[in-house]
Nucleic acid binder design. Structure first.
Lengths: 266, 266
DNA sequence: CTACTTGGTCCACTTTATGGATCGAAAGCA
DNA sequence: TGCTTTCGATCCATAAAGTGGACCAAGTAG
C-alpha cells in the first residue's frame, strides 16, 4: 500500500518522470521473491495503466535490468543490474557501514559482537568487536566461514532466506555440518530454521562450543532481502533468559538503525 | 567512440527513449574510475545536450543510482544501485557462471584450475577443478582466503584494480603477507603488480610453495572492473616457458568467453 | 461453448522531455 | 587585478515522446 507515498517527498517534480516510474517498477521487481512479478500485479500495485506498465517493463528488459521468464511470463531482476551492482560495490561495503553498531553493542553489552554475511552456502564473519567482559567467547575469527545454519549469525542468515533457498543451502551443506557438531543434520537445521522464524531471532545454545550461547538478528535491505546478520556471543552465565531478551532487544535496535541508514541513502 | 553504436541494435526504437538515455549515462558513470564523471565529459562522450545530460543526471541522483561529490561536482555510483545489485545477486552467482570454463580448462590441461574473487583486501577461492594429471598442486581449497597479491589468482585480481585501490590493499595487508613467505613485502607486491600489468598475466613462481608455479588472468565485467580471476597451478616440470605460454593462452580464451557471456546477457 | 483473466499491441491525443540561450561561479591567463 | 574561458546549473518555447483507452489473442475456469 505505501508504495508511491514514500517516493513523493522529492523537492520538485521537475524533469524525467518516466524514468522515475521505470525505477518504481524496478524496485517492485526487486521486492519480489523467486516467483517474480506478473504484469497485472504490477499494474494493480502501482495503479498504472497496463500499456504503460508493459512498455516500462520492456524498457527495463531492453536494458537488461530485468528479465522475463519465457514460461511464466513473470519478470525478475536481470544480469545487468547485478553487473552494475558489482561496479557500485567497491564504493559501499557492509563492514564499514556496520562498524559503528558493532562498537556500540560491544560497549553496551561487554560481550563479543559478530557481523556475518552470506557467501554462497556459507556465512562469512566480516567483523568482530570485543567487549570489556573478562570472559569472552571468540569462537569465530574474521574471515571464518561456516555452513549456513551453524552458529547464531549463520542461522539468522539462513532463516531469513526464502524457503527454496533455505532448502537448497541445507541440502548443499548436509555432509559438512556434522564436522561442527555431531548433532547437526539436515532435519535439525530445518527445525532450527522454523524455531528461528517463529521466535524472531536465532539462538545457538552451545551446540558447537559447550558453555556458550549466542543470539543473532538478520539485517534486511530495503527490498526485504537479508544482507547480513549481527550476533552476540557470551558464556552461559551471561545469557540467562532475561538478559538474553535484553541483548536481543539491543541487537534489534542496531539492526533497525542500520536498515534505516540504508533506506535513507548513504 | 563506439559508445552509442552498440546500443543501436535494438529491434524497434519504440517507447521510453529517455529511460534508455538515462541508462546510457548510468553505464558511463559505472565505467569511470574513482575520480567520477564530470558533466562536460558525459556531454562530450555521449554527444548529448548539456541541459539534457544534466537533467538525466539529476534523475539518476533522485533515484539514488548515482551520487554527486559536493566538492568536485563529479558523479559516482550510488547506494541504491548497490542495494539493487545485492538483490539481483541471489540470482546470479559468479561461480556457477564460470564452472563450465573451469571444467574445460581442467580437461584440456590436466592441471588444477582455480576461480578467485575479491573480498575486501583478500582473494577468496570460489571453486577448484582438478585435472587428470597424477601430480596435482592443491595449495588452495575452496573457501580459502589470501591477502590480495599472494598467489597467482590473487595477484591477477590485485594487479587489475585501480592504482589507489592497489596501494590501499598492499598497505592493509603488509603485516599479514609475510606469513605466507618471508620474501613478501609491500615493495615486492608493488613490483609484482607492475610486472603483472606489463606481462598481461600474473605469475607465481614458487614463492609460497616450492616446486610449483601458477599463472593467473583476470576476468573483467563490461564496465572494465575486475570481477574474478582464473588461475592454473602446476608443478615446475609442467610449467616450462613454452607450456606456460600455452596455458596462459587457454586461460585468456576462457576469460574472454566468460566476459563475452556476461556482455551477451545471461 | 461462454465468460473471464492475462500478456501484449495500437494509435490519436496531450503531456513531457528537449536543447539553445543564459547565468553565476570558479578556474585559468595576462 | 581584471579579462577570458570553462563548468555546473537553470529557463522556457518548441517539438517530440510517453500516455492510456480500446482492442486482440491465448489461455483457463466453469
Amino acid at each position: 500500500m505505501p508504495n508511491k507515498a514514500d517516493r513523493a517527498l522529492e523537492p520538485s517534480p521537475s524533469g524525467t518522470q518516466t524514468f522515475d516510474r521505470a525505477m518504481t517498477i524496478l524496485r517492485l521487481v526487486a521486492e519480489q521473491d523467486a516467483a517474480g512479478l506478473r504484469l497485472v500485479d504490477a499494474v494493480r500495485q502501482l495503479q498504472l495503466n497496463k500499456a504503460t506498465t508493459h512498455r516500462l517493463l520492456l524498457a527495463l528488459m531492453r536494458e537488461g535490468l530485468i528479465a522475463q521468464d519465457p514460461d511464466t511470463k513473470t519478470y525478475r531482476l536481470g544480469f545487468e543490474l547485478f553487473a552494475l551492482g558489482m561496479a557500485a560495490s567497491r564504493r559501499f561495503n557492509i563492514k564499514d557501514m556496520c562498524e559503528p553498531s558493532l562498537l556500540r553493542l560491544a560497549e553496551q553489552t561487554g560481550e563479543t559482537i559478530y557481523l556475518s554475511v552470506r557467501s554462497g552456502h556459507d556465512a562469512v564473519c566480516l567483523a568482530r568487536e570485543t567487549g570489556s567482559n573478562p570472559i569472552q567467547t571468540l569462537t569465530l575469527a574474521v574471515g571464518d566461514r561456516r555452513p549456513l545454519g551453524v552458529g547464531a549469525g549463520s542461522l539468522a542468515l539462513l532463516a531469513a532466506l526464502e524457503a527454496d533457498q533455505i532448502e537448497q543451502a541445507i541440502i548443499a551443506n548436509q555432509d559438512r555440518v556434522q564436522r561442527y557438531s555431531p548433532v547437526f543434520s539436515a532435519d535439525l537445521l530445518r527445525q532450527l530454521v522454523t524455531e528461528t522464524r517463529r521466535r524472531g531471532y536465532s539462538l545457538n545454545d552451545g551446540a558447537i562450543t559447550a558453555g556458550m550461547k549466542a543470539v543473532g538478528v538478520p539485517i534486511f535491505n530495503r527490498y526485504r532481502h537479508v544482507e547480513a546478520a549481527l550476533s552476540i556471543a557470551a558464556v552461559d552465565a551471561h545469557m540467562k533468559p532475561d538478559r538474553q531478551e535484553v541483548l536481543v532487544g539491543l541487537l534489534r535496535e542496531e539492526c533497525a538503525r542500520i536498515e534505516k541508514s540504508w533506506s535513507a541513502n548513504a
